[in-house]
Structure formats: C-alpha cells, structure tokens
C-alpha cells in the first residue's frame, strides 16, 4: 500500500471518529428523550410529583433548581464583577495579580463535592443558615465565581485601549471610568458570564445535595431556612430505583428538562458572546 493510500485511509478513519464524537451529543440527547418520553405528559412541567416521585410532574423540583441558580448568580455577580474590576483597574503589583489568577484556578478546579461539604460546614453550620436554599445559593455562588470572572475579564480586556485613553484624557477618575465606560461597554461580556454561570450551577448536584435539598415536603420555600427539592437530587434518588421502569422514566424526564435548561442557557451565552465580538469589532 502506498503511503498516499495509507494517509488517505487514516484521514478517512479520523473523520469517522470525529463524526462519532460529534454524534455523541445527538446520541445522549436522543437517549434522554426516548427514555423520558413515557413520563412526559402534558402536565409534567407544572404538576407536583407523587408517590415518592414515581408519578406526576416535577414542577417544584424545577422551581427549586431555578431558585438555587438565581440566588447563586445574584450573590456571585457583584463579587465577580468587583473582584475583576479591582484586578484590572486598580491592582498594579505583579504578585498580587498572580495570586488572584491562581486563586481563580483553585476555585475552578476544586471538586464540587468539597464545595458542598466545606460550604455546608461554613455557611450551614457556623453561620447557621442550615440546610436551606440560601446555603445552596451561597455554595453555588462560590463555585461559579471563576466562570463569571473569566467572561467579565475577557470583556474588559477586549475593550480597546481607545476607551481607556479617552477616559484618561478626559481626566476621569478610575471610578468614573468604570461607571460610565467599562461596565456599560462590557455589558454583553457580563451577561455572557451570567448565562455560563447559570448553566454550570444548574447541573450541579454534589455541591448542594447535603446543603440545600429535601426530597419531599416542601413546595416553594417560604423562608430563608427552607430547603428545596431540585431536579438533580430528584434524579439521584430515582436513579437508585433503576429496576422500576416507571420510576426510571421519571428520572429520564427530569433529566431531559435539566439538559434542556443547561443547553438553553449555553446557547444564550453563545448568542451574547457573538454580540460581544460584534461590539468589540465596531
């Protein structure tokens, strides 16, 4: 076999592999959909679950996941924004910047179960927020901090120097620059970060399973100290009943909803990132 044929063969082989890997997504989606179909009746998204989760809908679980996500973003955004602004606008020392960079990597790489355990210990036990959606949101907020920071930093650094020079030429103080130039111009970058952070928080199970959730008994939280049911932990409990096809179908159904949520948020982030690039090129 000549080397040209060999090479053509290899390239062909690689293209098949690439096709397989790309279709992995399709396979996963199709599986989740096919398995979840039996459970998806018209009221699935708006009914409460019944019979230990073996029937009914997942409304409160969905609400719980959304509440945790929203809480996480609301807590995380100011810290992320503030810290990146500080690092890019005020911080001059190289060591300082390096420490900040490493800290970001530490947070990003940490296994999420550790967030859950230490977070529960710190927020839930020491700060006495207990097993509640608040504890969950706090933990998730810490977890998605680096995700938000990366997007915000990207946006700030993409800002053309023109803006900075104009600001300095006008004699504006750093705060005025931040307020009137940087933040408004980085709007899309910030929102991109928000969506990516939400997507990451939505799927997270290990971080919240000890600290924020309950399997039954709570509909919507009525105070700061109530736990919530979530899609993720609902699925976890049901998965352990894998021999019962109805229960499993419920788990798949919840999985489909969760997956759709995560994909929706990711795609939204892409659209916004596209806008960011557009703006940067203007």
């Amino acid at each position: 076999m000549s080397s040209a044929t060999f090479e053509k063969g290899m390239v062909f082989f690689l293209s098949i592999l690439t096709l397989l890997v790309s279709s992995l997504l399709l396979i996963i989606l199709a599986t989740v959909f096919a398995k979840g179909l039996p459970a998806l009746h018209s009221g699935f998204l708006i009914e409460a679950s019944e019979d230990f989760g073996r029937a009914g809908g997942i409304f409160y679980q969905l609400m719980g996941t959304l509440i945790l996500m929203t809480g996480a973003i609301l807590i995380s955004l100011p810290v992320a924004l503030g810290s990146v602004i500080y690092q890019t606008q005020y911080l001059k020392s190289k060591t300082g910047k390096e420490i900040c960079r490493q800290s970001g990597q530490v947070l990003n790489a940490t296994p999420t179960i550790l967030f859950g355990l230490v977070g529960y210990l710190f927020f839930g036990v020491y700060l006495e927020t207990g097993v509640s959606w608040v504890t969950g949101s706090l933990i998730l907020a810490v977890m998605i901090l680096p995700t938000l920071q990366v997007s915000i930093r990207e946006a700030i650094e993409a800002l053309s120097d023109q803006y900075k020079e104009t600001g300095m030429a006008l004699g504006l103080s750093p705060w005025s620059q931040i307020k009137s130039i940087i933040v408004p111009q980085c709007y899309y970058g910030i929102i991109t970060g928000v969506f990516l952070g939400l997507a990451r928080a939505a799927g997270e199970t290990a971080a919240i399973m000890f600290a924020a959730t309950t399997f039954s008994g709570i509909r919507l939280p009525e105070s700061f100290s109530d736990p919530v049911p979530t899609l993720q932990t609902h699925m976890l409990v049901l998965t352990q009943e894998a021999a019962n096809p109805e229960t499993l179908a419920q788990a798949w159904g919840a999985g489909l909803v969760l997956l759709s949520l995560v994909f929706f948020l990711t795609v939204m982030a892409w659209i916004l990132r596209g806008r960011l690039k557009m703006e940067a090129e203007l």
Binding site: T70, G71, L74, P221, E222, S223, F224, D226
Partner: peptide, 17 residues
Amino acid sequence: LWVAIGVIPFPASADHS
C-alpha cells in the same frame, strides 16, 4: 430581582408555617 428574591420569603416567614 435582588429585592424580589430577598423580600418574597419575608411575608410568609413572618407568619411562618
């Protein structure tokens, strides 16, 4: 949004179930 998330639990927690 912030205020909403913070305030919504309050009315209920005052008369806490």
